[in-house]
């Protein structure tokens, strides 16, 4: 009896222990074979109450042309119709979106797995209770330090106490709560303490990796980017904590920087799309290219355009330039239609 079973690589950046198996695991399967994306990363808004020095999206104010209610729910319906299994909402700060809860309810009603990436500052006890009833895949809260001082140095106008309180409320409601930590010169020394603190909170996991040289992080690169030695210590600490919390709490890290990721993606694009607040669809975070517009096209049409765009010579040439000169990553948010 021939029961064929193959394990593929993880869809997103959360790589567990099997990093070395990355390429061999996807042999014989291409993103072009999928009839629709497996994952939609959706920046639902650009508005944010914070001004984080390392924000990839350079979030702050709303875009003038963000999708309206009708466009948002039209897209959600397409996600359901195409049987997209997994969606992540980010921003901006997604909880500031006027239809945030309705959007979450729509996806959960249609059995779509949903992750929400938030700074946590709008999650009080009542909101956590409401989120708990929606049975998310997870809620990710950014904690960029084990102390308020460190967190708030990086996350301007941020409130560490509120973010920690959000974690506590969510965990109390049984929500899988993942803590995201971005290492920079300002906070990398607190990596171990942050992971220990996450465990003491009862977090489902801690998710980290090298800072992405995109958006505001690219602009502030020289003051934020840790040294090679700091990264060496960072990865040693992570290894120690992974062993320490094995079976108790997940400690994920993505071992590649954004250039290594881009090099890999040029060969093996993922079966996912990145949707911006205005409905434009980006090929991948580090590149400026827009491959579709959900205000004018269906998701099925955009998916076909996405597949073709990865074979576009202009895209390939520019990606190679970025790999050779990572300073070009600073242009990743200067969108260009292809």
């Amino acid at each position: 009896m021939n029961i064929e079973a193959r394990t593929e690589r993880s869809i997103n950046s959360a790589i567990e222990e099997n990093v070395t198996g990355l390429k061999t695991a996807i042999e014989g399967m291409s993103f072009e074979d999928y009839k629709a994306p497996l994952f939609v990363a959706w920046q639902i808004n650009s508005e944010c109450n914070l001004g984080c020095l390392h924000c990839c999206e350079e979030a702050g104010h709303s875009m003038p042309d963000e999708m309206n209610k009708e466009e948002v729910f039209n897209f959600l319906q397409q996600i359901a119709d195409l049987n997209i299994p997994y969606v992540a909402f980010s921003g901006g700060e997604p909880l500031l979106h006027p239809y945030f809860f309705q959007m979450c309810e729509f996806l959960r009603r249609n059995n779509v797995s949903l992750k929400v990436e938030t700074n946590g500052e709008f999650i009080d006890e009542q909101t956590a209770e409401k989120l708990g009833t929606l049975k998310f895949r997870s809620v990710q809260i950014s904690l960029d330090g084990a102390t308020a001082k460190t967190h708030e140095k990086l996350r301007l106008r941020g409130d560490w106490e509120k973010a920690v309180a959000a974690c506590r409320y969510l965990i109390k409601e049984g929500v899988n709560t993942e803590i995201v930590f971005v290492p920079t010169k300002f906070n990398i020394h607190e990596t171990g303490a942050l992971i220990d603190f996450a465990y003491s909170l009862g977090a489902y996991g801690v998710y980290t990796g090298k800072m992405m040289r995109i958006g505001r992080a690219a602009k502030n690169w020289d003051i934020l980017c840790p040294t090679d030695l700091e990264y060496e210590i960072f990865f040693a600490v992570l290894k120690e904590k992974i062993d320490l919390y094995k079976g108790k709490m997940k400690v994920y890290y993505y071992p590649y920087d954004v250039v290594e990721e881009l090099r890999y993606r040029l060969e093996s694009p993922s079966a996912s799309v990145l949707v911006l607040p205005n409905g434009k669809v980006k090929l991948i975070g580090p590149l400026p290219f827009i491959c579709g517009d959900l205000k004018k096209q269906t998701l099925a049409q955009v998916w076909e355009a996405y597949k073709k765009s990865w074979r576009n010579l202009e895209v390939i040439a520019f990606a190679k330039k970025v790999i050779a000169d990572p300073k070009l990553l600073a242009k990743s948010n200067e969108w260009k239609q292809i």
Binding site: I3, R6, E8, S10, I11, P85, R137
Partner: peptide, 17 residues
């Protein structure tokens, strides 16, 4: 395609599977 979205693992099987 079987997709465990919490661990983000993907598994692919044939008709019998």
């Amino acid at each position: 395609v079987i997709f465990e979205t919490l661990t983000e693992k993907i598994f692919i099987t044939n008709e019998t599977g």
